[in-house]
Design a protein around this nucleic acid. Structure first.
Lengths: 215, 215
DNA sequence: ATTGAATAGGGGATTTTTCCCCATTTTGGA
DNA sequence: TCCAAAATGGGGAAAAATCCCCTATTCAAT
């Protein structure tokens, strides 16, 4: 497991885009595009097979099979050391926030000038961040959101969340809270949406990572 | 929520035992048995209804509905401040370890002399521990077990355990480890037994609390 | 006055988890 | 060399979790 600073991996399902990115990137100097993959699943596979770690991943957002959001989530957990520069067609705020939250070092639109793109690559590959007015504005707005105790929970929700971090089944939680299992199911679904998680394990980890629950 | 030092709760499903315990305890002096319950579920209910906290719980191990182990686990989480003295018919090592691990302040056999029982009550209700040769021997043996990095895991088990702390389903974990879902199921069952947990949430919490996994 | 959030609950279906049983092969020690 | 543990996989069934849909009440804020 060694990091190859000059190695770049492109993950984009449009071969046209992928190819022109490759040409562009390699024209900048000492960089080599060591792989062109078309979705996150292929990237997972690729990193599993490889013994070396690339110095940068260029990641598209909209992809079939395993999209950019899923992919960066996975990378954030499994390979937080690899810098990721996100390339996207659209500038939807929610998407941008998602990607940055999961550790993207920069978010750039595909239609920018080559010089901007070059700067982004270089900023990120050298361990820095790449900013635009848009991303900076979003960040400052999001920050103020975060500093209010994140997603604030109601008393009942917090009570439920704590019990979710135990071995109790939902039926048992329901009985401890003197509620119907159906009500508990409602709280569950609600928190899953609030925290953007897929199952109870995700809920527990989120609660722990964000200080709702102490170990 | 105020602690009533002199208040004692007895949890034992044998009314005969429970009653003679009550008489014995109250003959010692200023103690009052404020409740005689016949299983853990009733205790949970009782503590939920009550605004005061008893100064001591006398807890039987073998009970229907919610046994002593379940109960002390619950107490350990919800009311770690209440001292628990465990009363048992048998001296099975595993049971003793379980109960002490979950914070029992003493473990005493039901057939001891009244004077021993009296000493146990007083030791525990005054914030101390009650020891016998048996429990001390078990503790010292268990300690040496614990200081070897707890239950040691194989590489594959640890790899699996880490993935258990993510949102992946077992099917997804299996595919990431290039294994059959059935193999994964084997690891799961194995770890459940090793860690003495009931479900994946318990596994995750155990892994976190014991340093197998960082948040 | 009305709207929105919190609270509580139901029907019904699918997917996942959990729990038993079992077998094979490999591997590292005693 | 032989045994135990690790690693792998299977069948089958019950329980739990998850995901849609939906309703009603209360209470506070606009």
């Amino acid at each position: 497991m060694k990091t190859q600073d000059k190695h770049i991996v492109i993950v984009d399902d449009h071969l046209l885009v992928s190819n022109s990115l490759k040409r562009l990137v390699e024209s900048y100097g000492p960089y080599t595009v060591v792989a062109q993959l078309s979705n996150g699943k292929e990237l997972v596979q690729y990193l599993g097979d490889q013994s070396d770690i690339p110095g940068l991943i260029l990641l598209d957002v909209k992809m079939p099979v395993m999209d950019g959001k899923e992919t960066i989530k996975w990378l954030h957990q499994q390979h937080p050391e690899i810098p990721v520069l996100v390339l996207s067609m659209d500038d939807d705020e929610r998407t941008i926030i998602s990607m940055l939250k999961y550790g993207a070092k920069g978010y750039i639109l595909k239609d920018v000038e080559p010089e901007v793109f070059k700067k982004a690559i270089e900023d990120v590959i050298h361990g820095g961040f790449f900013h635009t007015t848009k991303t900076s504005n979003i960040l400052i707005k999001e920050l103020s959101e975060i500093s209010k105790p994140q997603t604030s929970l109601t008393d009942r929700e917090l009570e439920f969340l704590k019990l979710c971090c135990t071995e109790y089944t939902y039926k048992e939680i329901a009985s401890q809270m003197y509620l119907s299992p159906k009500t508990i199911d409602g709280y569950r679904e609600n928190l899953f949406k609030k925290f953007d998680v897929k199952n109870r394990i995700g809920l527990v980890m989120y609660a722990l990572r964000n200080g709702y629950i102490r170990i």
